[in-house]
Design a protein around this nucleic acid. Structure first.
Lengths: 342, 342
DNA sequence: TTGTACGCGTTATCAC
DNA sequence: GTGATAACGCGTACAA
């Protein structure tokens, strides 16, 4: 029996093919630098022994790991999962694999994960949003690890970004809502602490109201976790208050779904008694009844472009441009004119 | 300026602390084997230099990478994403990171990913389902890589499993459906090729029908991709046929959501004109209208248990037991008695 | 075109 | 308790 202990090494292949390890290495990494005859012999040995290179050794010698890291808040949110899948597909094509960490929206955990990824020698890192300690960016720069921030966009961020303007997107949606005639607005936002995307969306709403001359205290603002029940709870509180809003904007589609469910539990009709809007346009938005007016975000494209932006940096490009993705409002049944109010 | 070229190494720390690299290494990996005084000195040097170990080097020397690989069909499906998140959380606690690959339901791609993971020296691998070439299992065994299969369960599979009995779960649901009085059954299953979970579910339905003495040709069976539109299309075809079923079972909740949407587009009431059931009990199931009768699967627990099962193997446990998770039927409004038929 | 030999940063096995 | 030092598997100047 052959020993089934350890995988064959470069040296085993070299011996089998009657060449040096250097030649084998070249065959694998830069085939044209070796003459056809020997190359064939080497290749034969390679797949006869079932040789596969040891990545750790390769990483150490070549100082590249063919691995990309990503730190996202959570994969439980379909939008992160979806973009991450697109990101990963694109990387796989280029021979990279994805090392994932999740922060659970905790800045400290994120920082840890980033250091861990760097220690593991990843060739690049995908982050969500810009907001984090400057030290982290220093750290990344010092270690020469290419980085890209997604779900956000700025031409002059600390690292290139691939995303959209959260402020503008939400401002547009709010303007549209106002044009329907709504005056009392509720907004169940995502938690804004350490979350520039959520912050941008809140600012967008406020800006739209200001532009329309609606007093700031007409806005009922709450921050919620990104889940169904949080949406439901805040919806109930808002609607139970003395002067309930005629429309409730939500920080994302999941919160909106929670609001919608609560509405039906309270016997409120949407959009008859109250309009509801979301953000992201996940599949969910089309499935619930009534269908959700929301902001479409090209998640797949974001993942793909983020991957390409990162690969460009890895390949040595100097000034990689940030990518600004367009969002658009998708009007569906959940938004309508407010009914006359007392 | 300090040189910002490369990260500090063990040797730098050793020099700074006035000890040998061996001592530094011990301080980090097995602190009690070094006296307090020196340990303090070393630790001070460590975080003064901002030292973080190089994983590639560590992997090579220690023959463990503190990395776990996973190959799943796709993260776009919330159920995989969800369990993967739980899996990852559990691993992170033990100091491991997750290297993910996705197969897009393609056996060849999966095989590639597995080899890639092994070449990268992962300490363990998570796979979905049992069905794949025996060679793959040989390969994994030969390389001594602990493996666990999830979303499926068997006491004597090629590797330990953490999951549930797909056959039994679907059989139970079908029995429940039959007990409502349904006779003409439609089943929009997932693609069964290379997918033992989908196959198990189909067999479960067939077994239940057989046990109830319902002729096999009363079952209208279709295979669909796991997405909304596929569910919609097959639903329409089934309902447009001469003798439409009174209930349509679906291979998962997403397909069911598609069916439901199509029903409303066709002006069919659920469950008035036709009942619909799903599988997985994702959040979706409670949000759509009517709420979906489905099979609850403990995805989070599955991810967690899979992680622990894998870690046990890595820690050298000999006969790690497979974990059988319980599913249960969740009755909601989408299932009711069939209305009298002509 | 091909081979030699060193270095990459750790861990682990020895002595001391 | 601590310090040399030999692996670990590969890439790559440099030499031939």
């Amino acid at each position: 029996m052959a020993k089934s202990q350890s995988a064959p090494t470069l040296e085993d292949v070299a011996k089998a093919a009657g060449v040096s390890t250097a030649t084998v290495s070249r065959c694998l990494n830069d085939p044209n630098r070796v003459i056809e005859a020997t190359r064939k012999r080497v290749m034969a040995a390679v797949d006869q022994l079932g040789y596969t290179p040891n990545f750790a050794a390769r990483a150490m010698a070549a100082k590249r790991s063919l691995t990309i890291g990503a730190v996202i808040p959570t994969m439980n949110n379909a939008i992160f999962a979806r973009a991450l899948q697109a990101f990963q597909d694109q990387l796989a094509q280029a021979g990279y694999m994805l090392l994932v960490g999740s922060s659970a929206y905790d800045p400290v955990a994120e920082r840890e994960q980033i250091r861990n990824l760097v220690a593991r020698g990843v060739d690049g890192i995908l982050l969500v949003g810009f907001e984090r300690e400057p030290e982290t960016y220093d750290y990344l720069k010092r270690h020469g690890v290419p980085t890209v921030a997604a779900w956000t966009y700025s031409e002059d961020g600390p690292v290139p970004s691939v995303g959209f303007d959260n402020h503008l997107a939400m401002q547009s949606l709010t303007e549209a809502v106002l044009s329907y005639g709504h005056q009392r607005i509720g907004f169940i936002a995502g938690k804004t602490e350490g979350n520039d995307r959520a912050k941008g969306r809140v600012d967008g709403v406020i800006a739209a109201l200001a532009a329309a001359g609606i007093p700031r205290d007409q806005l009922i603002l709450r921050e919620a976790d990104y889940d169904i029940s949080a949406g439901a709870i805040h919806f109930r509180e808002m609607m139970d208050a003395p002067h309930p809003p005629t429309v409730i904007l939500c920080g994302n589609d999941v919160i909106a779904a929670g609001a919608m469910r609560q509405a039906s539990r309270m016997g409120l009709s949407v959009p008859g008694d109250v309009s509801i809007t979301g953000f992201d346009d996940m599949e969910l938005a089309q499935i619930i009844t009534p269908a959700l007016t929301t902001v479409y975000v090209p998640h797949d494209e974001m993942g793909q472009r983020a991957a390409r932006t990162l690969l460009q940096q890895i390949e040595g490009a100097e000034d990689v441009a940030s990518v600004k993705l367009a969002t658009k409002i998708v009007f569906r049944a959940s938004l309508a004119k407010p009914t006359s109010v007392p």
